[in-house]
C-alpha cells in the first residue's frame, strides 16, 4: 500500500511532539508539586509550636517583631522545600535551642523527674511532720490525766478560797 512520504514524516513528527508534550507536562507537574508557596495557615500551624527567645511568652505565629517575621519566612521557605513539621522543628531546636519549643520534647524523664521529686519531697515532709507531731499528740492525750491528779498546793488554795467566800 502506498503511503505518501509527506504523511509518514508528519506521523513521526506527531509522535515526537506528543512525547515531548508528555515529558513537559510530567516535568511541570513535578516542579509544581514541589514548590507551591505555603499559605499563612500552613506556616502558622508550625509557628504556633515555637517560641522565639527574643519575645518571651509570645508564640511565633502571633509575635509581631522583625525577628519572628524572619523565622516565619524561614518556615515558609522550608515548607516550600518539602520539609516536614518535625524536620523544621528539629532545625529550630538545633539552631536556637530546645527552649524554642512550645512543648518540651516528649521524653518520659521530662514529666517523671519533677513528679517523682515532688512526691519524694512530700513523703519526706509527711514523715517528718508525723514524727514531729506524735509526741505532742501523746502529751495531749496524757494531759487530762495529769490535771486530774490532786495537787496538794492547788487543793489547799481552793480550800482557802472557799473559806474566804
Amino acid at each position: 500500500m502506498y503511503k505518501p512520504k509527506l504523511l509518514q514524516i508528519t506521523n513521526y513528527q506527531l509522535l515526537v511532539v506528543i512525547l515531548l508534550a508528555l515529558a513537559i507536562a510530567l516535568t511541570t507537574r513535578a516542579v509544581s508539586a514541589q514548590g507551591p508557596t505555603p499559605t499563612d495557615d500552613e506556616v502558622n500551624r508550625v509557628a504556633k509550636q515555637l517560641y522565639c527567645p527574643v519575645c518571651e511568652s509570645t508564640p511565633l505565629d502571633a509575635c509581631p517583631t522583625e525577628a519572628c517575621r524572619q523565622w516565619r519566612d524561614l518556615i515558609r521557605t522550608m515548607l516550600a522545600e518539602g520539609r516536614s513539621e518535625e524536620e523544621i522543628k528539629q532545625y529550630f531546636v538545633e539552631h536556637y535551642g530546645v527552649r524554642v519549643l512550645a512543648e518540651p520534647p516528649n521524653r518520659l524523664a521530662t514529666y517523671l523527674i519533677p513528679a517523682i521529686a515532688i512526691l519524694l519531697g512530700a513523703v519526706l515532709l509527711f514523715r517528718g511532720f508525723h514524727i514531729w507531731m506524735k509526741p505532742s499528740a501523746t502529751r495531749a492525750a496524757t494531759e487530762p490525766e495529769q490535771t486530774s491528779a490532786p495537787d496538794p498546793y492547788i487543793a489547799r488554795l481552793e480550800e482557802e478560797l472557799k473559806k474566804q467566800k
Partner: peptide, 18 residues
C-alpha cells in the same frame, strides 16, 4: 497512755503537704 484518734478534717495532711 491512751491514744486518742485525731478527728478527721476536710483536707488530709498528705494533700496539704503536696
Amino acid at each position: 497512755e491512751t491514744s486518742i484518734p485525731a478527728p478527721r478534717r476536710g483536707v488530709p495532711l498528705w494533700a496539704q503537704i503536696i
